[in-house]
Amino acid sequence: MENLSCGQVIALLSFYIDEKLNSNLMKNIEYHLNTCSFCRNKYMQLRKIYDNYADIKSRIEEDNDEYIVDDAIYRNQQYEFFKENLSAYIDNELKTEDNLRVKKAAIINPIARTELKNMLLFQQTLHMAFQKTKNNLKKDFSGGIICKIRDSLPKFNVNSDLSAWDKLINMLSNFLKSRGIFSNGK
């Protein structure tokens, strides 16, 4: 049996867990792990992460993407802070240090990350709804409002046709421009 170094074993650990190595190499690593406590510890740690990951993955598949990782370790103080400030965070209304705390939680904590993602999705949907509502207004009230208030403004002559007036001013200013005299229209 070949003797593998610790470095070689650790480099191959993830393949070993996935059983992606030839049987000879599998046996060699198994032998090393039985005799070397350092590598065995590394192996146990990695194994745990992999099992956790497989667990989350199967839950995602079970719950059709709406998974809840019920690991108490994630529902810590950092998470509480995150939850309390997530709303103000997406509004960019937090002090720099609090902003960083929320961002950090979202990077480290998978539950927080999911909640941030859901919040942004929710916000996007709201904005789309608002856009749709805006376009539900099919009437243009602006002209009518102007008519209403024109009476209360003494300096404007109600009877003058403003568009005709504008045409006249345009003609005048074009005429002046053609003569090289700039006019702002008044």
């Binding site: 509502t133 805006k134 207004l137 009230f141 602006s142 409002i145 102007i146």
Partner: peptide, 18 residues
């Protein structure tokens, strides 16, 4: 300037309505 006012109102009305 009433035309400016009219344009302003026109731009804002959907927003107010929503």
């Amino acid at each position: 300037d009433l035309k400016a006012l009219e344009e302003l109102l026109r731009n804002e009305q959907k927003n107010i309505f929503a």
